[in-house]
């Protein structure tokens, strides 16, 4: 192995600090504080502005949780899943279907969402992880499409038309019909998700998963059952994304198979890459930036997809390491 390659490997296996560099620490903390305080302040001051509204930020936070979970397998594990939106859909339907039948308890919805998504991840992951490279990208997409068509075929639950959730999950102790409470809950879940990923990637288990990303053959040679490690990571990510789906379902109070279409999976991937793969807060930066720009451009012009597409391509071509990389380097290009 050449020097640069081994340096890269070391770079990969270096334990990420929670916030990264000192600049990174400041920027990240400020960013997370803004994300919490601005919408809350706007709410109490009665500022009616879409971009800082609780609604808008709650939607971003749900997607950020999904992006954080995708980052666990994509960024740290090197598994390029093009079907991650499936877990969002499953999580959301785990709220919608019981609610449709009159079972409104959050203590049913949320565990069900996590378990069902994890189970889907276990079954599909077990098959998908037999393949690699582009085949893996495409088979994960195929499974997501199957999920999409499965929910499409469920006539009872609205099929293509989707399902309206008439009351949000009932926790008993808190009331998420209040959008402030839902926002705070989602924020807490996001922080918990980031912290879990931090603990996971720094555990022995996480080191093996990251090792598979850098050099799977070597991990195998060291005697690790890499398949089992990767599958476990895949299942954890699936379950975490199911939670994001349950939150998103509760937030929108409307769910449809469209939540799991392939372009949604593509958007999630984009958030992760834009923010910076393999960093703890990167996916959050990515999700916020992505949705923010999309909303901003679409408020100006019907043809917003044109500048948006150009921005996407430019960011792929020119921002190395994503936004997180920029932040860690203190805004310098390299």
């Amino acid at each position: 192995m050449s020097d640069t390659a081994s340096a890269q490997l070391n770079d990969h296996l270096r334990v990420p600090d929670f916030f990264g560099s000192s600049t990174g620490r400041v920027v990240t903390l400020v960013f997370m504080a803004v994300l919490l305080l601005v919408p809350v302040a706007a709410h109490f001051l009665g500022i009616r502005l879409q971009l800082v509204s609780l609604d808008f930020i709650t939607r971003i936070l749900c997607l950020a949780i999904a992006a954080v979970s995708l980052n666990l397998i994509l960024g740290f594990g090197g598994m390029i899943s093009f079907g991650h939106a499936a877990f969002i859909g499953i999580g959301a339907y785990c709220v919608g279907i019981p609610a449709y039948h009159g079972y409104g308890s959050a203590w049913l919805h949320f565990p069900l969402a996590v378990v069902a998504s994890a189970a889907f991840a276990l079954i599909t992951g077990a098959i998908s992880l037999r393949t690699r490279g582009v085949y893996f990208i495409m088979i994960t997409m195929a499974f997501a499409q199957m999920g999409y068509y499965f929910f499409l075929s469920l006539e009872e639950y609205g099929g293509d038309d989707g399902l309206t959730i008439y009351s949000r999950s009932v926790f008993g102790i808190i009331d998420i019909e209040d959008k402030m409470v839902l926002f705070l809950l989602t924020y807490a879940c996001l922080v918990a998700a980031i912290y879990s990923v931090y603990r996971i990637v720094n555990s022995r288990f996480g080191m093996v998963v990251r090792g598979c990303n850098s050099n799977e053959a070597r991990m195998k040679a060291l005697g690790y059952n890499t398949y089992a490690y990767k599958l476990t990571a895949y299942v954890i990510a699936g379950g975490m994304c199911g939670l994001a789906g349950a939150l998103l379902g509760n937030f929108t109070t409307f769910i449809s198979p469209d939540m799991m279409s392939w372009s949604r999976s593509g958007e999630l991937m984009f958030m992760v890459i834009l923010g910076g793969t393999g960093s703890l807060f990167g996916p959050v930066f990515g999700a916020v930036t992505f949705v923010f720009i999309e909303e901003l451009l679409s408020s100006f012009t019907t043809y917003w997809a044109l500048p948006f597409g150009i921005l996407l391509i430019l960011s792929v071509l020119f921002i190395k390491g994503g936004l997180n990389g920029l932040i860690q380097r203190g805004w310098k290009r390299d």
């Binding site: 009616r48 502005l49 879409q50 509204s53 609604d55 939607r59 038309d161 989707g162 929108t252 409307f254 449809s256 469209d258 939540m259 679409s298 019907t302």
Partner: peptide, 22 residues
Amino acid sequence: EDDGFKPEIGKQKTDKLVQQDD
């Protein structure tokens, strides 16, 4: 507001009209 031919987007835009534009 543009619903993008999708129920989900339509609802998002409706929410915006109701909540933000009032």
